[in-house]
Design a protein around this nucleic acid. Structure first.
Lengths: 148, 148
DNA sequence: CCCCAATTTTGAGTCGTTCATGATTAGTGA
DNA sequence: TCACTAATCATGAACGACTCAAAATTGGGG
């Protein structure tokens, strides 16, 4: 992963703008962020940036393959800079925190379903759901960590 | 799968209502349907049913575990009657048609990621993306089948 | 440093879904 | 068989996340 936003943007043929640089920087330190939380982060340095602009930036960076977009069931789309390796994700059913999971048992058995019903498969997307460490701990202590 | 909606509803402790029976029937013949397409189907026999009521019915049946809800990236939620086996899905990147895929190589290697980052995994959700047979054919003939 | 297409802003609109309310109804018990 | 009551439905409003459109701004090649 290129950690130098400017060079990365240029080599992708995109203009270097404050919003794009800031978005890439924010996603370096905070992967799996939503457009809305990125908007809050970017506002610290770019007070006038709008949610729509953030969506713009994220869409541009995603189509330029500088970002990967994931859409977990039941929540807004999340973005991450780690791309090109089709890794997977674990999502906490308690607090919705997301972590990366490397592709299971190489060579990716998930890429070879037994019966594909005639489909020509190009991507296998795996999402694990479970309780993260701190939600497990909270549960044993009788706390609750979800957002309801 | 119980194909007798009435009995199935009763044993789940739910009242037998026309909307619920019709929804279960429609999902028997048309799995992977959205709330909106179900609404259109149900309207044929229940002309006054509203989209909101369909959402109601689907939510009730889902929490009663009579239906399973899937939320593929980029489209509305879909519902199916095949439950309890945690099977997976293939979705066509051309026409969005969905097919079932049995869990790969038993015993489900997808349930055992190498590094779970401390998560206690309960479910592994796998979605395959690719071109369905007819979209492949259309593509070789120079047709396009997507919806844009 | 000029210029113009690429980008951002602003504002409105869409989609899928949820929430809230009162009206209706399934199904139990009398 | 009927009345009653909680479960369910219809209706209407509201919401979050995102997209679209058009005018204003700006990056960066020349």
């Amino acid at each position: 992963m290129d950690v130098e936003p400017n060079a990365e943007l240029r080599s992708a043929g995109l203009r270097v703008t404050p919003g794009r640089v800031a978005a890439l920087a924010a996603l370096t330190t905070h992967p799996h962020s939503s457009a809305e939380s990125l908007n809050r982060m970017l506002r610290r340095t770019l007070p006038d940036i709008s949610v729509q602009s953030v969506h713009n930036v994220l869409a541009d960076l995603t189509t330029a393959r500088l970002l990967r977009r994931i859409e977990p069931a039941g929540s807004a789309a999340l973005y991450e800079r780690r791309i090109g390796d089709n890794h997977h994700h674990v999502i906490c059913t308690g607090c919705s925190v997301v972590a990366d999971v490397d592709c299971v048992h190489p060579p990716a058995p998930c890429l070879e379903p037994s019966d594909t019903s005639g489909f020509d498969i190009s991507v296998a997307e795996v999402t694990f759901w479970g309780l993260c460490a701190s939600c497990q701990e909270a549960q044993t202590k009788g706390f609750r960590t979800d957002k309801k």
